[in-house]
Amino acid sequence: MRFLIAAPTSMPLSKNKFIFYLATLLFVFPGNIFAHHLSGKIEVEGGKNLRDLIVYLEPANSSKLKLEPKLHKIMQKGRQFNPDLLVVSPGDKVQFLNDEDREIDHNIYSLSRLKNFDLGLGERGSILEITVDKKGSGNFYCSVHKLMEGRMISLSTRHFAIMEKPGNFILPNVPSGDWVVKVFVFHRRYKAVPVNITLNASSHENIELKVVKK
């Protein structure tokens, strides 16, 4: 069961749902909707149905970036990481909670470029923690159980949405300024073409993002 971080914006939207969400946002935030809610669509070359695309915004000037650290939690019941896809930022902490309903031990580790860690024995009821230091992506595993693996993406932004498939998206509450819209693509055959945008008080962007073959 996938736990989506930024629901409802993280869900791929049908056209009707997209219009519904947009209308709701317009109603709730009538004064600044055009400046603060970015909508768009992701199209993949050849129409391939790529899973778990992450659309996100980074400030064009990264020196303006200042994010308050957040705490994320990953559960392990049923020998599965939940969520198994987590978007974090440098400075964030991630807690791994062994919430198994019987005595099942885990050993969570990662040898990725994002973060090397080995949390040792994780018995039932344990809470083990890491701090993410940098941007990047990597997998983490349980060394005990075959099918226990997860993915972690560290981005310098809180403005993102996880999309189970290509389509429409909305990123709410985006401050005015110059931004770069990017898409993180897990499938290594594809890459996204970043788009530069400027959001100001009266603008409303409806952008098209292309994911193309490398």
Binding site: R102, D105, N107, G120, L121, V144, H145, L147
Partner: peptide, 28 residues
């Protein structure tokens, strides 16, 4: 992992221990 081996060697009745060794069951 050494911590899993150490726990099994203590003879705990957890599902991973069998006569002091790690008991590899389905899914492991």
């Amino acid at each position: 992992h050494k911590d899993i081996i150490a726990k099994a060697s203590k003879g705990d009745d957890g599902i991973y221990a069998n006569e002091g060794k790690v008991n590899f069951v389905k899914g492991m």
